[in-house]
Amino acid sequence: MPVQYYIFLSIALFCIGIMGVLMRRNAIIIFMCIELMLNAVNLLLVAFSKMWVDAGRTDAASAQLFVFFVMVVAAAEVSVGLAIIVMMYRNTHSVDINILSRLKN
């Protein structure tokens, strides 16, 4: 199976994530779309890892460990980001990101 299949799947998921970030105004949905983009990249890294294993490389486990670290960072990011969104909701009773443009006042 050509690795292009996985590349195109990852590109499709990544672009759907970008469209979601550009099209929605709900801060939580935007955050979820960022997670979707991270997952598209993870999938591509795992596919490349499998590709190099099948090509005979022995150090392809590094790609899977990189995915592991991306998951670690994503988990930390989500905990802080959701805390920020909850705080914003508590202050403004809305998760509309347009409210954030008034932060400077």
Partner: peptide, 12 residues
Amino acid sequence: LPAINAGASSDI
């Protein structure tokens, strides 16, 4: 790019 051999299993 090299192809993925989906049938082959590895313990990576």
